[in-house]
C-alpha cells in the first residue's frame, strides 16, 4: 500500500510541484494520473520511489516511511518498485537480455554486476520475463535494433525481472504509435490482472486512461482535484482537471503531437 499524508514538494528553484497531497493506493490497483503538462504528474510518480524526495509530509510505501530512507534501505524498497519511462531508458548498445538483467542488479552485490556474474537462475528468470512479453526471440539482439513498441516491452520485462509489487509508468505510451499503444496498454492490463502488480501510470491520453485504469487521479497545479473510479469521470470533472472542456479530437492525444515528441 502507498500512503501520502500531506505531501508537498518544492524544487530547489522554488517551484512548488505538489501541495498537500493525500492519497491511498492499495495493492493490485490500476491507477492513471491525468493532468496538464507541468501539473505535477511526473513529480507525484517519482516521489513514490524517492527519485524526487518530498519536502513536507509523510509518504509510506508498504509501511516504511520512504522520505526517511537512505542508502541500502532505500535501494531495498526501490527493488520492489519497477519503473517505466516514456523514452524506455534502455542501454541501447547492450543486448536485450543484459537490459532485462539490469532489473536483478539490486538483488546482488556490486561485485556481481561489475563482472557480469549473474547466476543462471537470474538469466532464466529474465528470459521468462521476455517470454511473458512475447519477445523471447529477441533476447540476444542489441536493444537499439528493436522498434519502439518492442523496446518498451523490454523495459517492462526489466521491471518484471525485479519481481516488483508496484510498477510506476511515466508516460509509457507517449512516444508510441496508436496501434503499438493499444498493445502496450494491454500488456499493462495483463500484468495488473494476472500478476496482481499495482500499476500507477501517468497518461496524456484521457480516453486510454479511462479505458484501462480503474481509478483516475486528476491533478492540477500540484493539487489533486479528482480521485475516484474511472467510470464516474464526466465532462465536468475533466473541465476541473484541464481548465476547459476537451474537444472530440483532444481526448485521444492527437497523433501529430506524439510524433513531435519523438
Amino acid at each position: 500500500m502507498i500512503k501520502f499524508i500531506n505531501v508537498g514538494k518544492t524544487y530547489p528553484n522554488g517551484f512548488q510541484a505538489l501541495r498537500a497531497v493525500n492519497l491511498e493506493i492499495h495493492d493490485g490497483e490500476f491507477v492513471a494520473i491525468i493532468g496538464l503538462s507541468g501539473a505535477g504528474k511526473s513529480t507525484l510518480l517519482r516521489t513514490i520511489n524517492k527519485m524526487h524526495p518530498i519536502t513536507t509530509g509523510e509518504l509510506y510505501v508498504n509501511d516504511s516511511d520512504i522520505s526517511k530512507l537512505k542508502g541500502r534501505k532505500l535501494r531495498l524498497v526501490r527493488r520492489n518498485i519497477g519503473m517505466i519511462f516514456q523514452s524506455f531508458n534502455l542501454v541501447k548498445r547492450s543486448s536485450v537480455l543484459n537490459n532485462v538483467l539490469a532489473g536483478r542488479v539490486a538483488y546482488h552485490s556490486t561485485f556481481v554486476s561489475l563482472f557480469n556474474l549473474f547466476p543462471a537462475k537470474d538469466k532464466l528468470l529474465a528470459l521468462q520475463c521476455l517470454d511473458k512479453m512475447g519477445i523471447l526471440d529477441k533476447a540476444f539482439v542489441r536493444a537499439d535494433q528493436l522498434s519502439g513498441g518492442q523496446q518498451q516491452r523490454v523495459a517492462l520485462a526489466r521491471a518484471l525481472a525485479q519481481e516488483p509489487k508496484i510498477i510506476l509508468a511515466d508516460e509509457p505510451v507517449a512516444s508510441l504509435d496508436p496501434i503499438t499503444t493499444i498493445a502496450v496498454m494491454n500488456d499493462f492490463k495483463r500484468i495488473n490482472e494476472d500478476m496482481g502488480i499495482t500499476i500507477i501510470a501517468n497518461m496524456h491520453h484521457v480516453d486510454l486512461a479511462l479505458q484501462y485504469a480503474r481509478r483516475i487521479i486528476g491533478i492540477k497545479a500540484g493539487e489533486i482535484v479528482y480521485d475516484g473510479p474511472s467510470s464516474e469521470v464526466n465532462e465536468e470533472i475533466l473541465i476541473s482537471i484541464y481548465g476547459r472542456a476537451l474537444k472530440e479530437g483532444e481526448i485521444l492525444g492527437n497523433v501529430e503531437e506524439n510524433n513531435e515528441k519523438k
Partner: peptide, 30 residues
C-alpha cells in the same frame, strides 16, 4: 552519455557503481 538508463538503474535499486557499470560503461566502451 544518455543518462536515461542510469536513472532507470537507480530506480531499480542499484547503487551508483552498479548503475555506472550497467548503464554507462556499455555506452563508453567503444
Amino acid at each position: 552519455v544518455d543518462m536515461g538508463p542510469f536513472e532507470a538503474l537507480e530506480a531499480n535499486g542499484a547503487n551508483k557503481l552498479q548503475a555506472f557499470k550497467m548503464a554507462i560503461v556499455p555506452q563508453l566502451l567503444p
